[in-house]
């Protein structure tokens, strides 16, 4: 699966479009990360727990996107965008969407 956020797969011709595909996940923070966060709110600096949490969540939404594209029979996804929304207090939705295509091998 080739994944890009530009309009094409460089060096390969697109032979079929499957339309938009998306993958999303909703994550809430957990208490441990939050304790560290309230301490860091005092001293400043990077919140490694949150960074890890959000990175994992984004990887999962990308994984679901790829899964959906595979079900359609695509072998590449172009023009990927990430979007986020705060859905509740302390929870965020991370979403990835793109266009599933088939390129010639």
């Amino acid at each position: 699966m080739i994944v890009t956020n530009i309009d094409s797969v460089p060096g390969k011709r697109i032979v079929e479009h499957f339309g938009i595909v998306q993958g999303s996940t909703v994550r809430a923070r957990h208490v441990g990360a939050d304790l560290a966060a309230s301490l860091k709110n005092l001293v400043g600096g990077e919140l490694k727990g949150y960074t890890k949490l959000l990175e994992d969540a984004r990887a999962e939404s990308l994984g679901r996107l790829i899964q959906q594209a595979q079900q359609l029979g695509a072998n590449a996804i172009i023009n990927i965008r990430f979007a986020t929304a705060a859905v509740a207090q302390g929870a965020a939705e991370l979403m990835a969407y793109g266009t599933a295509v088939r390129v010639e091998e």
């Binding site: 890009t4 530009i6 094409s8 460089p10 949150y50 959000l54 990308l62 990430f82």
Partner: peptide, 29 residues
């Protein structure tokens, strides 16, 4: 930008990302 002048130079492409969560200290807030 999305394109470079000569696309035939490109061998392969892949998505990459990097992220960071940073907090402000109490004094600056």
């Amino acid at each position: 930008s999305k394109n470079i002048e000569d696309e035939s130079r490109i061998l392969s492409a892949n998505l990459v990302s990097g992220s960071v969560v940073i907090s402000l200290d109490y004094f600056k807030r």
